[in-house]
Nucleic acid binder design. Sequence first.
DNA 1: GCGGAAGAATGAACGTTGTTCAAGATAGAA
DNA 2: TTCTATCTTGAACAACGTTCATTCTTCCGC
Lengths: 204, 204
Amino acid sequence: MNAPLSERRQAQLAALTDAAERRIAEGGMASLKARDLASDIGIALGGLYNIVADLDELALRVSSRTLGRLGEALTAASDALPLESKADAVNRLVAIAHAYLHFAKGNLRLWRTLFELRLAEGTALPAWAADDQLRLFRHVAEPLTLLVPDMDEAQQTLAARTLFAAVHGIVTLGLEERLVAVPLTALEAQIEWLVRAACRGLGE
Amino acid sequence: MNAPLSERRQAQLAALTDAAERRIAEGGMASLKARDLASDIGIALGGLYNIVADLDELALRVSSRTLGRLGEALTAASDALPLESKADAVNRLVAIAHAYLHFAKGNLRLWRTLFELRLAEGTALPAWAADDQLRLFRHVAEPLTLLVPDMDEAQQTLAARTLFAAVHGIVTLGLEERLVAVPLTALEAQIEWLVRAACRGLGE
DNA sequence: GCGGAAGAATGAACGTTGTTCAAGATAGAA
DNA sequence: TTCTATCTTGAACAACGTTCATTCTTCCGC
């Protein structure tokens, strides 16, 4: 190997994250095993801890990737629609919510691990991870500023959070399937109803 | 000991469930350790598995209790209000949502374990656990039948699920506090806005 | 080129888990 | 009391994340 070490470590980190992503996509976060990953990328068990502090960091890195792809999906959904009138804003919010649903369904295990991350009680999540999350809220916040321009900004942010959370809840329960399976189109309809109703409720 | 065996096992199961509940309430599901529990109720490690099949069953039993108490909380909130007019129905839905929020906040770790249960992929959850969940939905469904009596029943059930899920999402994200802490009163206001808006959207 | 220091790779070993099981203790019927 | 069925026990096992002394590589100043 004649690649410089720092480059090599970069490559190893990428390979490790790839392997972790693959494992999670196949079997959820429960199948993120140190020994499996080490053999996946052809290193010894202990070598993992030269690349990454612990498995939590690895899960966080995979989550960051997932959030990135989710952000792109929401951006794509947003950019496909005009944003001029208030009606546009509502339509865009519906489109974002639908894109969220489809991303979650299409990346079920990776999407779920976004919320299964349990950082050790005291420790806050790294800044770059927090940024990823805030970026998502902005997708919702942007149409809201058009929809209710008179509302003060803190309230707008809060409303964006609430709307996001509500849709997230519907998607979560809808994709659970533990109790009853809801058809995708029914889920879409429910989301649309709720988003439109919430928007009408915002204008008072 | 002169108590009949079956009685004794019953008592052991109760003591074990108590201990598990206490442990979870203190440190979340991550602190449900076989050895701790065995010593809590004064039996040998292996003895646990004469009382309970595995720790998952124990977590499920604790969850069942929690669901029971949650159901009582929602019932109390419901019964405090009249249910005659459509306005009553909306008020009741708001009250239920608020009661849900307060229960979650007041029983944070126990409430969270309700959704952290990961049954082994294939296995469905026991019937008695499914019943507990359906009973919850009925709290929401009942006012809905008054609010939109013309809607067919399947649609009503779906709407109840959606409304529940939306509120659940808001509560979940609101109590997360990982990103930003939302004051409880702000959370209440957000929930009320969303529930009222959703109800108005239902009547179309 | 080269020799030594700094760092990385290795896999055995540790500590903690949940779960099992052969052996011993105990309860209830005869 | 005695016998059998059952429960209880804690040592043992397997799987896990993580650490560490040892060995090998790589890099830099000469």
